[in-house]
Computed example of a mutant assay.
Amino acid sequence: MPNILPLSEVKTTVALQGTIIEAWLAKCLHGGALPPGLRSAMEYSLLAGGKRLRPILCLVSARLFGLAGEAALPFAAAIECIHTYSLIHDDLPAMDNDDLRRGKPSNHKQFDEATAILAGDALLTDAFAFMAGVQEIPAHRVLRALALVAEAAGSSGMVGGQFLDMLYTGAALQGKTVSLEQLATMHAMKTGALLRCPCEAGAVLAGAPEEAVQAMRRYGASLGAAFQITDDILDETGTEETLGKPVGSDKDMGKTTYPSLLGLEHSTRLAAEHAAAATQALAPFHGPEAALLRGLAEYVINRVS
């Protein structure tokens, strides 16, 4: 039986790893000619908390293949900058029009819409400078990992998925229905890509063999699916206090979700199946980092926020 880190220890490890990432994020925007007002808007969302799951996945994946986590830290944390940009833009009136994020007013509510757009733009662009500036890893590995992140964040990944999400929402559907296959494809792009790429990029940065990189890709893809299905479930069963954002907004906006297509019970089983598939992808790997990654697959479907 493969070793898996117990859920309580996973939570402790995630919290500890999160503090390391938080420390890097807290200083990454200081220096240079960044206008103070723009920095305030960027840091408002960047330092607002969150699980920091994406950079943690990158660091753990890198360590699994022998790369010290500190070497990959700027790269991993930059992925969190990209994730934060996506949240700022996702909350905008033209997108999901959400007033609350992580228990605080959304960026465009705290500042204004133009500032929020620019803060997101800056976080996205600066992230690539942070990743390209990594010095302790061979350049060809950094370049390949950069390409993976760009693909995951761009038109065939997160941005394309957001476009489909808008196309599949409420009035935009114009009486059409969204199939389970279409929903899965959309979420694999919008949410899954930015959870898959840290796993894959961490392996690439560490110089892992190609078959190991592909195994990490499969792990990340299944983890992303489990994460999104759980998100859909929590939007119906969670509370605003624990989630830090409005509950039931998916239904209010007419979004197609896993529970709306399959019901809560079937959706819960499907999330567990994807978590099991993620664990299975790690079968060739052993040691504490592999145990943590297996534990993270359980963590994403047992979380309450």
Rank of each mutant, 00 (worst) to 15 (best):
F111W: 06
A171D: 03
Y85W: 15
V60T: 14
A206H: 10
D232V: 11
Y219F: 15
R217Y: 13
S260A: 12
L118M: 10
A215W: 03
S8K: 15
N302Y: 06
R101E: 10
V134G: 01
G69V: 00
L148A: 02
A68C: 11
T125A: 13
Q110H: 11
F285N: 06
D99Y: 13
A283C: 08
G224S: 09
D98S: 13
Q280P: 00
C58Y: 02
F163I: 15
S305V: 03
A153G: 02
R52M: 12
T237A: 11
A184C: 06
E241H: 08
A225M: 15
R303D: 01
A150P: 01
M166N: 09
L67W: 09
Q280L: 12
G263T: 02
L123G: 00
G170A: 03
T185P: 00
A276E: 14
L223T: 06
A78Q: 10
E136P: 00
G154K: 05
M166W: 06
T268V: 09
L7R: 11
N3V: 15
A225S: 14
G254A: 03
E289H: 12
K51Y: 13
M158V: 01
D235W: 12
F75D: 05
Y85S: 06
A23Y: 00
A68R: 15
A114K: 07
K27Y: 07
T115N: 06
A122W: 05
Y85M: 13
Y44H: 11
R218C: 15
G49H: 09
G157V: 01
A206T: 11
D165M: 02
D99A: 15
L16W: 07
C81I: 07
L223V: 10
E265C: 00
